[in-house]
Design a protein around this nucleic acid. Structure first.
Length: 578
RNA sequence: GCGCCCGUAGCUCAAUUGGAUAGAGCGUCGGCCUCCGGAGCCGAAGGCUGUGGGUUCAACUCCCGCCGGGCGCACCA
């Protein structure tokens, strides 16, 4: 269904055209300050400027015409400031909308039009390595963006671009008999594989013979040697098994595709040849490069697609990946979620891809900053190693468990454990998603697990309190829907305020989608929970007389559903009690 | 050297993409429990948005210059 903002935009733009004959958009925004009203029309200022007229008289004219056009929707609009038109919604209009939102599986969020095919590339772990904090942001930000785009009705294709090819396998395969033993018999832990890798790297640093052996192993693998290939395959399988366990714990959606770098290997020579033929790439100092001489920021930053020894590089694979994705899925857009340090690489990649064959393809690099420790430096263990995701999730659950045990000793143990799991994992994810992704953020257990402030536990608790009303009142919740009640009465200011805010869920989704910023969903949900709290303190639900009781139950139900859906778009679960 | 990103309350962060009086949490101070879950709610104090110019009816937001911090820049990914 159409959102309130869209409705106002459509109507006001029409009125502007009719009343003053201008083509400009109404540019409807929520009012920054509620004292002015609910929505403000900002579009008259640019129109007046273009015409060289005083905006106030123009705005007066439009406001007068709007009064009748919006008669059922809003109070007569008023003009304020430099030429803003303020719109104040009528309770009856808002009340009439709520049952429709309740009956809408999308909770009032309009479907994307047109729906597009969007490939999203995130997480991208490496074979033979454990997931660590470095993978956390890409994985959960990507997952949330994928969920949100899909909710809007787009065709989303998630593709995990695994690091399954490259020099690390030379070092690993040097120990292939050792690996073969482990991989052949039982499940080997990734930490053992990492140890073997580190041992070989260390040896190669000291001993040139060891280095040559590693190189020779890599060559064998790349030439398709059966033994090397078998071990490599087993390493990939074992790693993905372990990584999928973490994905399951994290609650990220399964990837639609997991196509690693190795998948693109057969295409690489062709990519280089084609770019050279097309004149986009050229030989330089023995290697093959793409230059961007006409782009000021990139003019002294070549993009290397083939080494002087003939080997291909990360950029080559990424170009081949674009080619494959376009051929296979014909997407309108490809989104990459990686840390901001790779920004230059993606600028080069995108520029090259556009020049190559894909001028109309939208390419987006969604960047994010580092996770910092309490010392404001990238978070590490005492020994300087990256923190493994497994440990991190363990600790989150453990800390949540301690809080739950202390507060709810009366609940059965299994219930407490489930609560701790949902709260602990949710807290870690929410702490990350609630922040503007471009900044670094400081990782802090006490803050993310706090019950007050913009945290997952606070929102989960808000949800639980609402569900508790339905349990207590023996109202099944779903019973509220389909009761056939047409109008919600909104007598109290707190009811009206909450109701209007529920109708703004689509705005939050739109903001979050435009710039791939899940934190807009977070701050909306936090504000929603705050408005609900005010309502909850001031307006008894179960003890209220009709029709207030039914109306309030609908408000409760809607708040709960929006909270649950919003958290779901963040990849965070809710529970019924905690 | 070149390029990119970031400087907002004591601390950790928001700010609807150029809109009206820059908002939260923590911390500090003060209120609210015969009432649906107090892990809660309400209120107060706290700001020259790093800095100097510019564009605009309007700038935390855009442009230029400084000062701080981070990151990246030819054979790793």
């Amino acid at each position: 269904m159409e959102s309130v903002q869209q409705l106002l935009e459509r109507l006001a733009t029409g009125v502007i055209r009719q009343s003053i004959g201008a083509d400009g958009a109404a540019n409807v925004r929520p009012c920054g300050n509620p004292k002015f009203g609910d929505y403000q029309i900002n579009g008259l200022l640019p129109i007046a400027k273009a015409r060289g007229e005083n905006p106030r008289p123009l705005a007066d004219k439009v406001a007068a015409a709007l009064a009748s056009a919006l008669a059922d929707i809003a109070e007569p609009p008023t003009v304020a400031g430099a030429g803003f038109i303020n719109v104040r919604l009528k309770p009856a209009f808002v009340g009439s909308l709520l049952p429709r939102v309740l009956g809408d599986p999308r909770l009032g969020v309009p479907a994307a039009s047109p729906a597009r095919t969007i490939v999203i590339d995130y997480s991208a772990p490496n074979i033979a390595k454990q997931l660590h904090v470095g993978h956390l942001r890409s994985t959960i930000i990507g997952d949330s963006i994928a969920r949100t785009l899909e909710f809007l009705g787009h065709k989303v294709i998630s593709d995990n671009h695994i690091g399954d090819w490259g020099t690390q396998f030379g070092f690993l395969l040097r120990s292939k008999s050792e690996l073969g033993e482990y991989l052949g018999t039982s499940a080997i832990h990734l930490s053992t594989i990492e140890q073997i890798y580190r041992k070989n790297v260390a040896e190669a640093e000291k001993d040139p013979a060891a280095r040559d052996e590693a190189k020779a192993e890599l060559v064998k693998l790349q030439a398709g040697d059966p033994e090397a290939t078998r071990i490599w395959k087993a390493l990939c399988d074992r790693t993905m098994e372990a990584i999928n366990e973490i994905y399951t714990r994290l609650g990220v959606r399964p990837f639609d595709h997991t196509l690693g770098e190795s998948f693109y290997h057969p295409r690489l020579a062709g990519v280089v040849a084609e770019l050279k033929t097309r004149g986009l790439a050229e030989d330089s100092e023995g290697a093959v490069c793409v230059f961007f001489r006409d782009v000021p920021q990139l003019k002294d930053k070549p993009f290397l697609i083939q080494k002087s020894d003939g080997a291909f590089l990360y950029p080559t694979t990424d170009l081949a990946t674009v080619q494959y994705r376009v051929e296979t899925w014909k997407p309108g857009e490809i989104i990459y979620v990686t840390d901001s340090r790779q920004k230059l690489h993606f600028e080069q990649l995108f520029t090259t891809a556009r020049r190559w064959d894909y001028p109309d393809l939208k390419l987006a690099h969604v960047t994010f900053g580092s996770v910092l420790g309490e010392d404001n430096k990238p978070i590490k263990t005492r020994s300087g190693e990256p923190i493994r995701l497994e440990e991190l999730l363990d600790e989150g659950e453990k800390r949540a468990q301690a809080i739950v045990d202390a507060n709810y000793a009366d609940l059965p143990e299994a219930t407490r454990r489930e609560i701790a799991r949902v709260v602990g994992i949710g807290a870690v994810k929410y702490a990350d998603l609630s922040q503007n992704r471009v900044n670094d953020y400081v990782f802090s257990w006490p803050k993310m697990l706090a019950m007050q402030g913009n945290t997952a536990p606070y929102l989960q608790y808000a949800y639980v309190r609402i569900r508790s009303i339905f349990r207590k009142g023996e109202e099944p919740g779903q019973g509220v829907r389909g009761r056939g009640q047409e109008v919600v009465t909104l007598a109290d200011a707190a009811e009206f305020d909450l109701a209007k805010f529920i109708l703004r869920f689509p705005e939050a989704i739109e903001l979050a989608t435009e710039d791939y910023r899940p934190n807009f969903i977070c701050s909306y949900l936090y504000d929603l929970a705050g408005k609900f709290s005010v309502f909850y303190e001031r307006c008894p639900v179960l003890k209220a007389d009709e029709p207030a009781r039914s109306s309030r139950l609908i408000l409760c139900q809607l708040t709960a559903e929006v909270l649950r859906k919003g958290l779901d778009l963040l990849g965070i679960q809710t529970i019924e009690q905690m």
